[in-house]
């Protein structure tokens, strides 16, 4: 196996709010292989955005290490750190907030070019900015380059954010819900553009989304990691995850996706969760954090120990579920019995 370009080793991250400590990420292990399509999927509050920020170095992990090209990022200094810094970029969710409203597109994009001495003169900078804008499909460039963000549409702005992330010639781009706030009609074209960039520019994408359908489209040839309350519960090749998921949480997520065909949606197997409420991060249940909602809950097993991410059977999947990894299979838990 190739050396991963980015790697999480036992990364945890918690935030302090007043006196309470909120554990947002717990013991995450994750490898990002060069040029792979990797998707982080989960509900809001599952820690996927925090993972993205740790990947980009915008947040430091509370514990654990982040490796970039095999080297611990926290030990990188000087030129090495700058190299990492420039190599991993982020595209934010909200195209309305990610561009500084006081700068023109040219200004926003030329700052990093000058800062990293990628260009020397204004002419070079303009040419480079124009080139990048063409890459992201903002043509004709002269209609855009001297505009302010508020004069562009949401989709155009998102393309500018992507172009700006490309200014430092990154190897990895973390796309954090990058199309969720763009009009549905433009989503696919932006996704296609990102996928094309992988081929032409050799950029690895880590795609963060709450939308399994998008993840499926984007990472069909790659992997999906499903996150729940600060942990990865299942990770594996996209076709397996989306067609034959094993982990109860992934199963329930998939069953909740409405299909374009209403008949299909209606006939789809509905998984009834035992509870609709997502536990608070400050009051995480003991054992598997999904157990209060899990339809296949095994009393005395799931609520005792925290399951670790382990290879599952013969498949390429790795998942964190105590009954499954003990080879017990899933049996629907009868809530009535309990009551």
């Amino acid at each position: 196996m190739e050396e991963p370009i980015l790697e999480f080793k036992k990364i945890s991250r918690s935030f302090k709010k007043g006196r309470t400590v909120i554990p947002v990420l717990q013991d995450i292990d994750l490898q990002v292989q060069p040029l792979e399509y990797l998707c982080l999927v989960g509900e809001s509050g599952c820690g996927k955005t925090t993972s993205g920020k740790i990947l980009t170095g915008l947040l430091r992990p509370s514990s654990g290490q982040l490796f970039f090209e095999g080297r611990d990022v926290s030990t990188l200094k000087g030129a090495d750190y700058t190299h990492y810094r420039r190599s991993v970029q982020i595209i934010h969710q909200d195209p309305y907030a990610s561009l500084n409203p006081t700068h023109t597109i040219y200004n926003s994009m030329s700052f990093p070019l000058f800062r990293h001495k990628l260009v020397k003169t204004r002419e070079q900078a303009r040419a480079r900015v124009a080139e990048l804008l063409e890459v992201v499909g903002l043509t004709p460039v002269r209609d855009v380059i001297d505009k302010y963000p508020h004069q562009l549409s949401g989709g155009q702005r998102q393309r500018v954010s992507i172009a700006r992330a490309l200014t430092t010639q990154p190897k990895v781009i973390v796309a954090d819900e990058s199309v969720s706030m763009v009009d549905v009609s433009i989503r696919i074209s932006i996704l296609n553009m990102l996928m094309a960039m992988r081929e032409t520019l050799g950029v690895t994408f880590v795609f963060i989304t709450h939308d399994l359908a998008l993840a499926k489209y984007f990472a069909w040839k790659g992997r999906i990691a499903v996150m729940y309350l600060g942990r990865i519960v299942e990770i594996g090749p996209t076709p397996e995850i989306t067609l034959s998921p094993e982990h109860p949480y992934t199963k329930s997520l998939l069953s909740a996706i409405p299909e374009p065909d209403p008949d299909k949606t209606r006939t789809k197997e509905q998984i009834r969760l035992r509870s609709e409420d997502i536990p608070r991060l400050t009051e995480l249940p003991a054992g598997c954090s999904f157990h209060p909602r899990c339809p296949w809950f095994v009393p005395g097993l799931c609520d005792k120990s925290v399951p670790s991410l382990e290879p599952f059977a013969a498949s390429e999947l790795r998942l964190a579920c105590t009954p499954l990894s003990q080879g017990k299979g899933l049996n629907l838990f009868e809530t009535r019995n309990l009551a």
Binding site: R19, T20, V21, T282, E283, L284, P285, A286
Partner: peptide
């Protein structure tokens, strides 16, 4: 449902 004992900082 069992709640994880909140880390009580002394």
């Amino acid at each position: 449902m069992q709640a994880l004992p909140a880390k009580s900082q002394t």
